[in-house]
Amino acid sequence: MSTVATTGTEGKAWGGGSKPLRASYGKMMMWFFIVSDALTFSGFLAAYGFSRFKFIDSWPIADEVFTHVPFFHGNFPMIYVAFMTFILIMSSVTMVLAVDAGHHMQKTKVTWYMFLTIIGGLIFVGSQAWEWGTFIKGDYGAVQTKGGNILQFGEYVQKDGKKVFKRVAVSDFAATSQYKDRVQHERKNGLWFFSEGTLPDYTVAEVAKGLASHNNILVRSQIINSEGEKTVLSRAESLKQIKENGQLVVQGANLHVNEYGSPLFADFFFFITGFHGFHVFSGVIINIIIFFNVILGTYEKRKSYEMVEKVGLYWHFVDLVWVFVFTFFYLV
């Protein structure tokens, strides 16, 4: 049955069949792939660090960006990401339990643990999609200046006897005028090869008018002060900045604009979590393939569940990357 040609070097060190480093070829190559993939992710995270250090005094504060939890209203910074982290660690555990059951040739156990791992992966990918959706949709809206900076709105309120700055949504105070500056350009209305994205709900003029008629509302700039908070401008300065520098009303985030601050933050968010999400997704696909192989008894016939171990290495690596993304995107 052997498909390997006899070379006359059997039994010698390079004659084949021996395992250098006591790891099989597949496992060792999986490790080397993981090293190279780890370097790719470090490249992304280090580039994120570069951009952040470049704008260290005006970078968005993650706690203020990711504050939502599905089905609940209110301000819960970090809770949902922590849940996602826990889901991924949990699915790592079921994976390593599957590997362990594989070592003992327990087919039923491997099947169930693989199944749970796949479910965990799907919950994670779904959560990430939701996180993206929330981020794209945005929260309060903001005004982008000519120089590309972001001006946000809020007011001082008393909370537990302390004066705190509470954000106010643009839609809560902007004046609505009957006449818009212009309508969205669609292909059918003009040259067929020109079109544009949806226009913002409000124009800068409407925001400026609304701001002028609401005496309590102030503008907050991107600059982080010595207390680690974003600088709030005085009333006079607020009116002046919106009037003189405001250029575009921004709601949510995409690759061009970002209501939370530097567009680079959104770019890196989409790119890094997207690349990681792609890894999770492909991990789920590979897990499903292996899952069916387990059910079909492929590894019983091979008398080795090493394939589960190899895909397990990949799956743990995805978890490992998330631990770093969690720290550098959400915590630090």
Binding site: L21, W31, F32, I34, V35, A38, L39, S42, G43, A46, A47, G49, F50, S51, R52, F53, K54, F55, I56, D57
Partner: peptide, 25 residues
């Protein structure tokens, strides 16, 4: 092979990029 290679290259990369980012700032 796995850990030292990754740790060395990642530290190197992080040092260079963060240093440069601070300079640009």
């Amino acid at each position: 092979m796995v850990v030292w290679t990754a740790v060395f290259l990642i530290c190197y990369l992080i040092f260079i990029l963060l240093q440069e980012g601070g300079y640009v700032f």
